[in-house]
């Protein structure tokens, strides 16, 4: 009996030296919405990479939790549940930049590592996977439009969900960059809520009163609906920036014969896996800065077929991140 115990202790100590320190740690994903293709792909990528990491004994658990409704109070309650359930790290896509700060502070105080991505939080104790959306997305769209419309023209801006930090950030970049291009003018903006249906409705209501639109700035997930609204109203098709959705990419491909050349960019849903590896590195005892920047996934015409082939019908172009990529990103951010 005693020898058996000793033997198992010996094996356990061997194993712990062979494996990462995070091998006994549990990571939870706190998510507040699952009703669109982006979030579904985000959860799918998390599951894929998380299960593999559990199978490889890198972490003990990588569970995903989604609240029943979109609002912040339900997610705050969910975070408190995760604290009680004894997770070592919580990776969170937050419903609000500050409404969850109280719960997140409680988690930090309980010694839990909190890593926010996509929907970020302002609580200073949380680690953040940041994307400079203002520059790499908002301003970049205007640069791409300016490149394709050298003579300028009227722009329509289809914004995201009002009141979200994502919408505010992208808009900041759009406004800053458009000031540098006097021949481009935003003549109207509507809220498409990153949703084809909402975007199509919103654009349909505003189109009849607008002059000829040369380009559409948007925030992804709304490009196809916007195109349908232009088509239904019988207006000439403008240059519409796209957001990596399969229907947007397929529509782009169908427009290529007419010389249509646009640009597509969006956060890859697999960024949840980037946040996962950041959490794992912290649990592993690595030194990680409070902010780890990453880039968005952009698609230009030569890559279109490749991404179209790998994106499921109705889904969004995706890329998952490896531990190595994240280790490199952390090293770059630490400099």
């Amino acid at each position: 009996m005693r020898t058996a115990l000793l033997a198992s202790l010996f094996v356990a100590s061997l194993a712990s030296t062979a494996l990462a320190d995070s091998s006994g740690k549990k990571i939870a994903l706190s998510n507040n919405y699952a009703g669109n293709s982006w979030r579904q792909a985000m959860l799918g990528s998390w599951k894929k990479v998380g299960q593999q990491a559990v199978a490889d004994k890198i972490v003990a658990a990588a569970d995903a939790f989604t609240t029943a409704d979109k609002d912040a109070p339900s997610q705050a309650a969910q975070v408190q549940n995760l604290i009680l359930q004894g997770y070592d790290a919580i990776v969170i896509d937050a419903a609000s930049p500050d409404a969850l700060n109280g719960s997140i502070k409680q988690a930090c105080d309980a010694g839990i590592v909190v890593v926010a991505f996509d929907g970020l939080v302002t609580e200073p104790c949380a680690y953040k996977v940041t994307i400079d959306l203002a520059n790499v997305y908002g301003a970049e769209e205007i640069r791409q439009i300016a490149k394709r419309l050298p003579n300028g023209g009227n722009l329509l801006y289809v914004r995201g969900l009002a009141g979200t930090s994502i919408d505010a950030d992208i808009t900041k970049g759009v406004e800053a960059e458009i000031a540098k291009h006097p021949n481009l003018k935003i003549v109207a903006s509507v809220n498409g809520d990153w949703d084809e249906t909402t975007a199509q409705k919103a654009v349909a209501t505003v189109l009849p009163s607008l002059p000829t639109i040369a380009g559409v700035v948007d925030q992804g997930g709304d490009g196809y609906g916007t195109a349908q609204a232009f088509k239904a109203a019988g207006k000439p098709m403008p240059l519409i920036m796209l957001g990596n959705r399969q229907d947007e990419l397929a529509w782009w491909k169908s427009m290529i014969p007419s010389g249509y050349n646009t640009w597509s960019g969006s956060e890859a849903p697999g960024m949840s896996t980037f946040a996962f590896w950041v959490a794992q590195q912290i649990l592993d005892g690595k030194k990680v800065p409070k902010e780890v920047p990453m880039n968005i996934l952009t698609i230009e015409q030569p890559d279109l077929d490749k991404y179209l082939a790998s994106t499921p019908v109705g889904g969004v172009a995706n890329a998952e991140y490896t531990q190595d990529e994240v280790v490199k990103a952390i090293a770059a951010a630490s400099k």
Binding site: N36, E196, T197, K201, Q228, D247, G314
Partner: peptide, 9 residues
């Protein structure tokens, strides 16, 4: 009309 189903349509 909106070219596809969705949960929150």
């Amino acid at each position: 009309y909106f070219r596809g189903s969705s949960v929150d349509i």
